[in-house]
Structure formats: structure tokens, C-alpha cells
Design a protein around this nucleic acid. Structure first.
Lengths: 189, 189
DNA sequence: TTTAAAATGTACCGATCTGTTCATTAATTC
DNA sequence: GAATTAATGAACAGATCGGTACATTTTAAA
């Protein structure tokens, strides 16, 4: 297996950056914890930023796959899928390793709107909106774009509330709010 | 004026940390941009962390004063005050210097739950919840605690959405959502 | 005007930062 | 088994990190 070392590096770097932050994690400590030599790291990635971008790409892929697979598993009609999103969130929040949204944190550490990490984080959110909008359309929402934006706002807000531990049951509170929004904006057939 | 230098330092450090981030801003560049010598900085604050804490304290004070003063200026009954929150947010988002919520970013850069910066950020959110809950009670909400949590979730979500620029009109979308929540949870007298 | 306090500039400390060099060892491929 | 590729360790570069020492200058109080 040839490209496995690179993949392993990205996987391990993902969990370490997620746990400790981007600026707070040095390449030396990254090498120390992964057991992968610095020389190898810089052979696969020209700069630390390049590694961070690869990590964010992997995170985007992992997260969206995980989330939408979960939603599909419920095997629900679109309307109920929108609500089930918040059950998936609740599950996420309860994980021991839960440390908030990696993209919110990336955009907090790399604030310049032209920074690739910022751009990629914004793109992740755009993809989520797109997906929710599509489900909202299938569910027959009056304004699918608006509903998707509102559900996404509830999602991001719940993540922040849970991460900053001022609201451990944020997912449930957000779900109740989502229920009202959905009932209001999707006419029963 | 004797204690003004210290206050000036905290004020200037606030805007620089807010603009560039905590880890990304060094004490040297802080001295360079403020014109305040490093020696003076370390005479007023033993460590960088101490300065950061002072900055967060000032931000908490400034932000809550600003927000609740704005709300009072409208001179609205409690129910409409809850909604007006999102007009205040919209105004904030439009500022050129808007760069998201400083406490979300602080808790992203200092993730250990025991870190003073994290603790203080969580405390800021707790104080906001307390205040909203009090207004929700006056407005006659069925469950003031829950409604306050939901409005806070909408607020944080809107901030994230606006900051990551995937939803420029996040405040308006959140306001529409809040309207529905309020109508549902506060019985008309 | 004298005296005390506050702020300054500069040079420095040791540690850490990203990134490189290079000779050596391990693993694949032919 | 030989040749090629991948990975390693360790030392190093130059810059920056947070923080200090100290002698000098500015400011404010007496």
C-alpha cells in the first residue's frame, strides 16, 4: 500500500487539529504524536497550510457522508428527515470527543476571507445548505431556501451552544424549534 | 490620567485580537500596532493570557451594554423586545468590522474547559441567557427558559452564518423564525 | 523645582515555530 | 537479488514566540 501513509497522516492530523486547534498544534508535536516523521510530512505537503486544507477536505467528506447516511438510515419522508437532523446532532453532541464544528473553528482561526481554509469552510456550509434545501423542496416547503437557511441557523447555533456548554440539551431545544418552523412552512398535503 | 494607559491597551488589544485572532497576534506586533511598549504591557499584565482575559471582560461588558441599551431604546413591550434582538443583530452584522462573536472564537482557540478564556466565554453566554429568560418571563412565555435557549440558539447560529458569509441575511431569517417561536410560546393576552 | 512614578527603547533569554538538509534504513517493484 | 522508492532520525536554519533586564526619558505630583 503506497498512498496509505499520506492518508494516515491526514486522518491523525484531523483528530489532533480538531482536539487542540490549528495554531496551537505545531508540526513537531504532530510528528511526535503520530509517529510520522516531519520529513515525511513535508514530503507529502509543502506547507502546514496544505496539510490543514487536506484535513478540512477529509472532514467535509466524512461529516457530510456521516450525517446524510444517518438521515437515510431512518428511511423517513422528506418532512420528517428535516426534523431527524436534530436527532443526529444530539448523537454527535454526546460523543466524548465532541469539540464543536471544525469549520467554525477554522474560520475563527483563519479570518481573512481569501484564506483557503476560510474559503473551504464557507464552501462546506454552502454544500449543507444546498442539501437541506433539496430536502425541503421535496417536502413541499413554501420557500425551501429560507427554511433550509433557518434550519442551518438552528444547527450552527445548537453546535455553538453545546460546545460552549451553556446548553447541554441544545439539540433538543433546536428540534422543538425546527418542528414549529416546519409545521408553519410546509403545508400538510 | 494614570490608569488610562492600561485601559487604552485593553481597548486596542480588543480590536486587534478581534480582527486577527488570539494565537495569531503576538505581543511584539501588538506593541508595534498600539505604540505601547512591551515593557509597559508586561508591567500591567503578567502574561498574555491575563491580557486576553481583561480583553474578554471588556468585550462582555461592552457587548451586553450595547445590546441591551439598543433594546431599551426601542421602548417596546417584552414580547416585541425579544424580536427586536434580531434587528440589533442585523445592525451589527452590517458593520464593516464585524468578524463574528469574540467568545465563540475564544472558545475555539482555547478549548480546554478549564481554561480561563473558555470559562469566561461560557459565562458570557450564560449571562445572555439569563437576560433573555428574564424578558421572556415578563412577556408571559409558557417556558421562559426554553424560549430563551431557542432564541439564543438562533442568535448564535445567525452570527455563525453571517460570519462565514454563507448567509448575509441571516439576521432576517432568524427573526422570521423567532417570530414563529414567540407566537407559538407566548399566549396573546 | 524637586521627587517620585510611569513609560520607553533596546537588547536579550530560551523555547518554539515552519521548513530544510542529508545520510541512513525500510519497504516495494522488477 | 538488484534497483528504486519511501520513510526515518537528527541536526540545523531563520524567524517568531512569550517574557525579562536595565538604563533612559517622559510625565505627573509635591
Amino acid at each position: 500500500m503506497r498512498p496509505s501513509k499520506r492518508d494516515e497522516l491526514v486522518r491523525r492530523a484531523l483528530e489532533i487539529f480538531y482536539r487542540d486547534g490549528f495554531h496551537a498544534t505545531g508540526m513537531d508535536s504532530l510528528a511526535a504524536e503520530t509517529g510520522i516523521s516531519k520529513t515525511t510530512m513535508f514530503k507529502h505537503f509543502r506547507t502546514k497550510d496544505d496539510l490543514i486544507l487536506a484535513v478540512l477536505r477529509l472532514r467535509d467528506e466524512n461529516f457530510r457522508n456521516w450525517m446524510f447516511r444517518k438521515l437515510e438510515e431512518f428511511d423517513l419522508p422528506p418532512r420528517e428527515q428535516l426534523l431527524a437532523l436534530f436527532d443526529v446532532l444530539a448523537e454527535w453532541f454526546q460523543e466524548k470527543k465532541f469539540k464543536g464544528c471544525m469549520f467554525i473553528k477554522a474560520s475563527a482561526e483563519f479570518q481573512e476571507k481569501t484564506h483557503p481554509a476560510y474559503v473551504q469552510s464557507a464552501e462546506h456550509k454552502r454544500l449543507l445548505h444546498q442539501a437541506f434545501k433539496s430536502i425541503a423542496e421535496k417536502a413541499g416547503a413554501r420557500d425551501a431556501g429560507l427554511l433550509a437557511r433557518q434550519l442551518l441557523i438552528l444547527k450552527e447555533g445548537a453546535i455553538v451552544a453545546a460546545h460552549m456548554s451553556f446548553d447541554p440539551d441544545a439539540a433538543q431545544a433546536a428540534k422543538l424549534a425546527a418542528q414549529v418552523l416546519i409545521d408553519t412552512q410546509i403545508p400538510v398535503k
